[in-house]
Structures are given as structure tokens and as C-alpha cells.
């Protein structure tokens, strides 16, 4: 059957057939132009593959190899740690900041054109001047207990560690009060509050006419 012979063509090219099989295949090829042309197609593949040039090996590869070999005897060097340990407080505060901002912005974005125009905190009036009772209220009621709890558990010095934000913030407090209570390390928390102030403070004053 020609199919059987066809399946043997590749092994034939690689010299992997037994002498007996090879003889039979040769006869079949001689008798079948179709089989002969299949063989020619496969031979063309081999010729094309063989024409792939041997690349030049950059000298740097050998140099690096030599360096690796030289370093082999030496114990693995004490590599510097891949990342510096970040302040846990900062990490938690940043996470909380992201959560609060997302919570605050998302529900409003649809109908509030101001969201898109919110500038950076620096561009806004000083926080101390901003009357932001609503923002504070928002924080107190914010459905982010996990984040707040995380902050509460962080090793913040000299701050009541049971539940910082609810305790520190009462409705009517200004952001200034809170800022005064926080340690300098808690910049990220302050930033959240600044953003809250920005978002709330802008609304009444800068609506489009």
C-alpha cells in the first residue's frame, strides 16, 4: 500500500529503515511517481533546514561562561534582598486609600462631570480651611471596616490602636483635627483624607454653570 510506503519516507531519508524495507521502498518509489514526488518534497525540507546558517557566537557569551565557571567554586554570594521592607503602616494605608477612593468615586462617576476634572491635592485650597463635615461623615460611615481594622492593627505609635478612624472622627470634625492626631508616618492616611476633602469640597463650589 502506498500509504505505508509514504509513512516510511522520512525514516528512509534518515537512514533508519532496515535494508529489507529500504529495498522495497526503493522499488515502490521507482514504480510510483506520486511517491517519488512526496520524497522530493521531504528532501526539499531537509535541504532548506540544512541551509540555515550557523550563527556567530558573540564573544561575550564565552566571557560570561568563563566568569560563571570562575564563580562556581565560590559559595553563592549574599545577594542583597530583592526589595526593601516597606513600612507596614504605609502599605496598609495605601491599600485603604485605594479602597476608599474607589468606593467614593465609582458610584458618582456616572453622573458627576466633576470627577473627571478633579485636580491633584496640591492644587486645592489648604485642607485646614476646608469645611468638610460631609467627608468626615463619609469616613465614619464608610463600609470599609476591614481596611480600617487593618489600620487599627498597624503599629502606629501613640495612637489609640483599637479603632482609629471612628474614634478620631466625629461628625463635624474637620480634617485638621485628624491630621493633628496622626503620626508623621501616616502620610498615606492623610492623603486619603485630603482627597476626600477635595472631592467633597469641590462639589458645591465648582459645579458647572
Amino acid at each position: 500500500m502506498s500509504t505505508d510506503f509514504e509513512a516510511q519516507l522520512s525514516a528512509y531519508l534518515d537512514g533508519e529503515l532496515s535494508a529489507e524495507d529500504e529495498d522495497r521502498l526503493r522499488e515502490a518509489i521507482a514504480a510510483s511517481p506520486g511517491l517519488a514526488s512526496k520524497l522530493a518534497e521531504l528532501e526539499r525540507v531537509d535541504a532548506a533546514l540544512a541551509a540555515v546558517p550557523v550563527p556567530e557566537v558573540p564573544a561575550a557569551v564565552k566571557a560570561r561562561l568563563r566568569a560563571s565557571i570562575a564563580a562556581q567554586g565560590v559559595a553563592p554570594s549574599a545577594r542583597p534582598p530583592r526589595r526593601r521592607r516597606r513600612s507596614f503602616v504605609m502599605a496598609v494605608a495605601a491599600a485603604a486609600a485605594a479602597a476608599v477612593l474607589v468606593w467614593l468615586v465609582l458610584p458618582r462617576a456616572a453622573d458627576d462631570p466633576l470627577i473627571a476634572a478633579v485636580p491633584t491635592p496640591a492644587a486645592v485650597q489648604p485642607i485646614a480651611e476646608a469645611p468638610v463635615p460631609d467627608a468626615v461623615q463619609l469616613i465614619a460611615e464608610a463600609p470599609v471596616p476591614d481596611a480600617v481594622q487593618l489600620i487599627a492593627e498597624a503599629p502606629v505609635p501613640e495612637v489609640d490602636s483599637t479603632s482609629i478612624l471612628p474614634d478620631l472622627l466625629a461628625p463635624g470634625d474637620s480634617v485638621e483635627v485628624l491630621v493633628g492626631e496622626l503620626d508623621a508616618e501616616d502620610v498615606a492616611v492623610v492623603e486619603v483624607l485630603e482627597w476626600l476633602a477635595v472631592l467633597e469640597g469641590l462639589e458645591p463650589d465648582e459645579g458647572r454653570g
Binding site: 509513512a7 519516507l9 522520512s10 525514516a11 531519508l13 521531504l42 526539499r44 525540507v45 532548506a48
Partner: peptide, 17 residues
């Protein structure tokens, strides 16, 4: 290996032709 080489070479032949 025989099967792998056969399939690979045949596939390339089809592509070239």
C-alpha cells in the same frame, strides 16, 4: 522519535509546497 520526525517533516513539506 520516528513518529515525531515524520510528522514534523511532513508538516514542513506541506508548508513549503
Amino acid at each position: 522519535v520516528k513518529a515525531l520526525v515524520h510528522r514534523g517533516r511532513t508538516a514542513l513539506a506541506r508548508q513549503l509546497v
